[in-house]
Design a binder for these strands. Structure first.
Length: 330
DNA sequence: TGCCGAACCTGAAAGC
DNA sequence: TGCTTTCAGGTTCGGC
């Protein structure tokens, strides 16, 4: 399942292959994968063809490619400017936005390679010295998607510095997303203020991309386990020292996952070359129901990882070293 | 205003 | 063997 490390692995791979190349043709095989492009398939294709990819940048799990457009056009999800299309000089920046959702893949492929079973969108790129000529969006569960969006000015340091060039613009749909723990501009004080202001459980806050981005179900469980905190701990009772430990744990687990090429449980997550990551082998809590807690067993305690339903998904905790809050309070 | 649950979606695995 | 049910979870949206 793509979370921040997986999206970053994809971003790095993609940047190597597509930066500076022109999109020469676009084929939408399943319009459901561009349903967030409000102006429809023809507009989506029209916005992309003959555009040049400037970079590949990311905030949280949103990934986008700022485009240099050669002809006047309307940004797909932006309000139509008065009088219709505007001149090249005044056209706001546009970008191709991607979210991988649960099962989305962005693959660089040679045109001779047979179509994947769940291929949804195909971008043909200009020829470039031995590089694959197709960028394919493959998505089994169709939770992810592509759309063209406007870039809006930002004064907070850009998307997060993951691109080659620090851009003073951010994709409109990503502007409400908080920075992730690996972002050089991540502010602990901002995170702690937002968490304390929430009146909910700790894991729900971790999964709120407006509080902290990039954390999904897997890394939320791993970070909570490493920080010895229970998912249901009320956010307004979170001590600063606990929050520091939690953010450090999130940074650590995601850095480790990034170094391992991401977490793969099945074929649903692969990098742009179709290869799986190896971090699943290093998970301490997620997916380990019924197995001894590594930390407890190391000191002779009988902790066994337990799976519970929370927010319509599974949460894995050790009842010994991540005790449940009593009466909802600690 | 902000929290929370439902819905979206498909294939693999489990159960019968 | 084949059919049905359950499960996986990121994001959005509507209800409260």
């Amino acid at each position: 399942m793509p979370e921040l490390p997986e999206v970053e692995v994809v971003r790095r791979g993609l940047a190597r292959w597509v930066r500076g190349r022109t999109i020469t043709a676009v084929e939408v095989l399943d319009p459901r994968s561009i349903r967030r492009h409000a102006l429809g398939t023809e507009d989506f294709i029209g916005n992309l063809e003959n555009s040049t990819v400037l970079d590949v940048v990311r905030r949280g799990k949103f990934l986008w490619m700022p485009l240099r457009t050669e002809e006047p056009r309307s940004a797909g999800n932006a309000a139509e400017p008065p009088g219709g299309a505007v001149s090249v000089e005044t056209t706001p920046g546009v970008a191709l936005m991607a979210h991988l959702g649960m099962s989305g893949q962005l693959l660089m492929q040679d045109p001779a390679v047979p179509d994947e079973k769940h291929l949804k969108v195909r971008l043909r790129l200009s020829s470039s010295d031995g590089m694959p000529e197709e960028l394919r969006f493959v998505d089994q569960r169709i939770f992810g998607g592509l759309f063209v969006t406007s870039l809006v000015p930002t004064s907070d340091g850009g998307p997060g510095g993951q691109g080659e060039t620090p851009l003073p613009e951010i994709a409109e749909e990503a502007s409400h997303i908080a920075r992730d723990p690996l972002d050089a501009h991540f502010s602990f004080d901002e995170f702690y203020r937002k968490v304390k202001a929430r009146k909910t459980g700790l894991k729900r806050a971790l999964l709120d991309q407006g509080v902290i981005s990039g954390i999904g179900n897997i890394y939320a469980d791993e970070a909570l386990w490493r920080a010895r905190l229970h998912y249901a701990k009320p956010t307004d009772t979170l001590k600063r020292a606990d929050a520091v430990r939690l953010v450090d744990a999130a940074k650590e687990v995601m850095s480790d996952a990034l170094a391992a090429g991401g977490t793969s449980f099945d074929s649903l997550y692969v990098n742009v070359n179709g290869a799986s990551g190896y971090f699943a082998r290093s998970l301490d809590a997620y997916g380990r129901e019924g197995e001894p807690c590594m930390r407890c067993s190391a000191v002779g305690l009988p902790g066994v990882i337990k799976r519970e339903q929370f927010m319509n998904r599974s949460s894995y905790t050790c009842p010994i070293c991540q005790p449940k809050p009593r009466n909802g309070r600690w």
